[in-house]
Amino acid sequence: MSESSLPGGFISHVVRVGATVRRPASASTEFIGDLLTMFEASGWPGAPRYRGIDEEGREILTYLKGHVAWEPQQPPDVYSEESLLRVTQLVREFHDLTAGTELAGSHEVVCHNDLSPKNTIYRPVSGVLRPVAFIDWDLAAPGARIHDVAQVGWQYLELGPSVEDISEAARRLRLIADSYELVDRRDLVSAILWWQERCWRGIEAAADSGDLAMIRLRDAGAVTEVQEAYQWVCDHRLNMDRALR
């Protein structure tokens, strides 16, 4: 069966084969397989299904049809308030499914750890695009609820120098916390800054060690972009902290 490359490619080469997606296996493949199998058993539709390993040693996942927000310019529906609310609800759903399971271990839940519009499937619902599922679960691991909520704040609000209305961004961050029903949101902005610093430092460290994918990311300006986003959040932290009270 013929293969066709899917968007992305900075980290790993992902291809579509018929109704499946094939991606390189990793040390986390068994964990991710168990996680996706649990989602399937529960009937949760927000993730691809795991179908094992192919003859080339690649993970086999079901292909989810829909719009993935890879390009810089996106339809307004992708960043609408309604889509933001649905993203947050989806996160809460899979967090609640994993809470108290062996996969979460001693942690609160299993986190996706790479939530962004680029890893979200959007489909028409009543004539408008809405998020229906998350892809790229390869970084999923036990963690704290607030970590994924912070990623939603950073990535889906595009917190950084491109934000034109700080008050609106702060209001939407509060909306995320309210929609998720995050009990303790005092550390939410701190968690966003933690993610941003971890991201750019991680890219730099891996690139310095010779990781070709991270070198490409750094050369594409990813480190500078995240550093600027980090500084922007630092500069406007007071406004966002106030909105979360």
Results as ranks from 00 to 15, higher is better:
16 R>H: 03
188 L>I: 13
56 E>S: 13
29 T>L: 02
187 D>W: 07
214 M>T: 00
202 G>Q: 09
2 S>T: 08
178 D>I: 06
245 R>M: 12
60 I>Q: 04
62 T>Y: 04
14 V>D: 03
191 A>P: 01
198 R>L: 08
229 A>L: 01
157 L>T: 08
239 N>L: 10
33 G>D: 03
72 P>W: 13
36 L>I: 00
44 W>H: 07
76 P>G: 06
6 L>T: 01
36 L>Y: 10
1 M>N: 10
126 S>N: 12
183 V>D: 13
14 V>H: 05
50 Y>F: 15
90 L>H: 09
61 L>H: 09
184 D>A: 14
118 K>Y: 06
225 E>F: 13
163 V>Y: 13
49 R>K: 14
229 A>C: 14
184 D>R: 12
86 R>S: 09
204 E>V: 06
185 R>H: 08
174 R>K: 15
66 G>N: 05
143 G>T: 05
188 L>K: 10
5 S>V: 14
109 V>C: 09
34 D>Q: 15
14 V>W: 09
7 P>V: 05
227 Q>D: 02
236 H>R: 08
155 Q>W: 04
128 V>N: 11
140 A>F: 07
73 Q>V: 15
190 S>E: 15
98 T>N: 09
88 T>I: 11
78 V>N: 12
154 W>I: 11
40 E>D: 10
130 R>Y: 03
38 M>L: 15
119 N>C: 06
179 S>G: 14
98 T>I: 05
229 A>V: 01
11 I>F: 08
245 R>L: 12
49 R>V: 03
171 R>S: 14
58 R>L: 06
55 E>D: 15
29 T>W: 02
105 G>P: 09
104 A>C: 07
62 T>I: 05
109 V>K: 05
94 F>Q: 06
142 P>E: 02
236 H>I: 14
244 L>Q: 13
206 A>G: 00
217 L>V: 00
14 V>Y: 06
82 E>R: 05
81 E>K: 09
28 S>H: 11
134 F>D: 04
158 E>H: 11
208 D>H: 06
176 I>Q: 03
136 D>N: 08
38 M>T: 04
233 V>T: 11
